[in-house]
Design a protein around this nucleic acid. Structure first.
Lengths: 229, 229
DNA sequence: AATCAACAGATTTTCGCAAATCTTGTGTTC
DNA sequence: GAACACAAGATTTGCGAAAATCTGTTGATT
């Protein structure tokens, strides 16, 4: 389970994905095969497979005979993605509250706890700790909706998460992005409402959480653009 | 726009996709590279790319070092997929009714008309006409939700459609699948309600349409299993 | 001066072979 | 007789070179 030497394709996929998400490549930047081959030390075939998969995930775009490039970011897409997340995840949360068993509750409690611990531990100086924080954050939100009973909803939630994480990563390291917001309190309130099986409150809090996030990220996203001009 | 000689990868992707959807390959059947190479006359690389893309689309599964196989079908997945379609598309329809302009209305009218024509023309004897009918059906449903204003919702709807079309194709050619159902009347009623901007009615009819379809396909899907046992 | 054609360099896409891995069938041992 | 090890065949995966395509530049023509 642990020693399994992953295939080159898997490795290339994981590395590229991580670097794109963490912003090592700029949006719209062309991804040249030769350059990537040197950078990761893998051949053409695994790279193509990785890029094809990333294209399907929406992190990369491709035009025939013109290669691959990092998928663009836009305010429009950010808004759309966060709104859609709110729409889909509130439904998944609603179903989870109805169907969730003891294990579901345990997953929420434990992932919230882990998120809190990592939150205390993290600082903007350490990029790794921010990656770990993002991981915990993701785990908590997935735990919330993990009893929806719908494989399809889970897949959709997953792909929307991928579509939104690139907007959050840069702003995590930016102090301006968390001006007057108590993230742990928001998460705690959502968890409490979910565990209390209060559908209306839990879904309302979750939707507000996403709308708030959307606005903050929009500002963080718009700021660099203003400066650039 | 038309003469563009598509790349081998595109071709392989399109052909494989079509054959899987139309049921030329059985679910869970292994897809051997050598076999596909002979069948389509393309090399390993384009085939791998095609299979990787199809895996991302959910039509194919892959296990490391054990190759690719046609994705399985199940009653569970059918139910889940159709329920999720109803959930997502009713929202997209709601938004389209609010935001749709003259072009949106025109798309509905024209695609409904084209669907009706193809419906008259089609017979179970001609596989091509059924493929054309499926195409028209798809176009109509996409037209309904084509003014939602959300790229993400459109993507989700698209991927759920792909996930459901394999269940419908086999049952299209099966007479038992359309016992006492006036499909054109259902579609006409949905279109009328949408054009009349009656959100509540249109979304209710659309949801019922999908629930009915889910039940019919479930029976068609369960039948062969009963016989096999 | 502007437009277009053609050439050279760079890049993507494709192919066939070698290496790594899995599967199947056979023989041996307890 | 059952379980295991092992070898042979089949299959996937990875690599580098060759072919096809695109991009940018130079030079000729109007």
């Amino acid at each position: 389970m642990s020693k399994t030497a992953k295939s080159m394709g898997e490795q290339a996929h994981a590395m590229l994905r991580h670097q794109i998400i963490s912003g090592a490549f700029a949006p719209e930047q062309p991804l040249r095969l030769a350059q990537l081959q040197e950078r990761f030390g893998v051949g053409f075939s695994p790279l193509r497979e990785a890029l094809t998969r990333l294209t399907a995930e929406g992190l990369v775009t491709s035009e025939p005979m013109r290669g691959f490039r990092v998928a663009p970011l836009s305010l429009e897409d950010l808004r759309d993605t966060m709104e859609t997340r709110a729409f889909v995840e509130t439904e998944a949360l609603r179903r989870s509250i109805r169907r969730g068993d003891d294990d579901w509750e345990a997953r929420i409690v434990s992932s919230l706890h882990a998120l809190g611990r990592q939150f205390e531990r993290s600082s903007p100086d350490q990029p790794e700790s921010l990656a770990a924080l993002e991981e915990r954050h993701r785990d908590f939100h997935f735990a919330l909706v993990s009893a929806s009973g719908s494989r399809r909803l889970e897949q959709i939630i997953d792909s929307l998460y991928v579509g939104s994480v690139r907007y959050r990563m840069p702003s995590l390291s930016n102090r301006h992005s968390a001006p007057a917001r108590d993230l742990m309190a928001e998460h705690g309130a959502i968890a409490d409402a979910a565990l209390a099986r209060d559908e209306a409150l839990a879904t309302r809090l979750l939707a507000e959480h996403y709308h708030l996030t959307a606005e903050m990220l929009s500002q963080a996203q718009a700021a660099p653009l203003d400066r650039a001009v």
